[in-house]
């Protein structure tokens, strides 16, 4: 083989290795170790937030590119939120948070990079999301079913992890919301996510979410995480350990109990 041809072939292979799924050798993995915490409150898309306050404050909302049908669904959720009765699945201590809300949690995070997978591990929940970087593709459509974190396959572009997520639950099932304003997605949601440590030393997660059923355009949301001081620890989160806030399954109201489990307050709406 002529030298020029060999050189060209190596150039093509080297370029392909950078942009196509490829197991990452240990020395090439970025250092994402340590403990991280989300910057800002649990409004999923702070860039489009309107109103003053947090996700449970009446009047606060976000503005994804919903079509009319899904805007109406969101407005209905906001009305429930205003009444203090929006049923947040996280409050029931039962099911995983799922994607993309897994990038919108309080408490802390770990980002574990291995040669063939990346794991997003959250103290809250706890939750884990697996991103395969070993070169595999998504399974055929007939071999996938909706799950909380969906199916994610990715590759490295230098120190940036790029991954593709689909096969998510629809919020219509009641299993998945993005925050306590009642932000939702359908089971057609699909995301391309880019994760890297930015120039400020923050973990930056940029999600470009499209949803053929709910959106009129792609929706780009960026979440950032700060690195906690070295030596920080992550602890067990056991939601049912001493949950003194049972939720009325009929009204969605959150009660408070005494130390014996007796409800001490009443739903002001009843």
């Amino acid at each position: 083989m002529p030298n020029q041809l060999k050189k060209s072939l190596w150039t093509v292979l080297a370029t392909a290795a950078c942009v196509v799924s490829w197991p990452l050798a240990a020395q090439d993995r970025p250092d994402w170790s340590g403990v991280w915490a989300m910057i800002g409150g649990t409004i999923f898309d702070a860039d489009t937030k309107t109103g003053e306050g947090g996700s449970t404050t009446p009047g606060v909302r976000e503005h994804p590119p919903y079509n009319a049908e899904w805007e109406a669904k969101y407005l209905a959720n906001l009305a429930q939120r205003d009444a203090g009765t929006f049923p947040d699945p996280n409050s029931f201590c039962g099911i995983p948070t799922g994607f993309p809300r897994i990038f919108n949690l309080p408490d802390v995070y770990e980002f574990a990079v291995t040669d063939k997978q990346v794991w997003i591990i959250t103290e809250n929940g706890p939750n884990i999301m697996r991103i395969y970087t070993d070169g595999r593709a998504h399974p055929p459509a007939e071999d996938m079913w909706p799950t909380h974190t969906g199916d994610s396959v990715g590759h490295w572009e230098g120190d940036t992890l790029v991954f593709d997520t689909l096969s998510l639950h629809s919020s219509e099932s009641g299993n998945t919301i993005l925050d306590r304003t009642g932000l939702i997605l359908s089971d057609a949601a699909h995301s391309v996510t880019r994760m890297r440590i930015n120039d400020n030393g923050q973990m930056e997660v940029q999600m470009t979410i499209d949803d053929a059923r709910a959106f009129t355009a792609p929706w780009v949301v960026t979440k950032r995480f700060r690195h906690l001081e070295e030596g920080s620890r992550v602890y067990d989160y056991a939601c049912n350990e001493n949950n003194r806030n049972p939720i009325d399954p009929n009204t969605g109201w959150t009660y408070t109990t005494d130390t014996e489990g007796n409800i001490i307050d009443r739903n002001p709406g009843q």
Binding site: T42, T56, A83, G84, T85, F86, D88, N90, S91, L105, P106, D107, N124, R180, C239, N243, N245, I247, W253, T254, Y255, T256, D265
Partner: peptide, 9 residues
């Protein structure tokens, strides 16, 4: 910070 549930009460 009470993250697990609504603060409406």
């Amino acid at each position: 910070v009470v993250a697990h549930h609504s603060n409406a009460m």
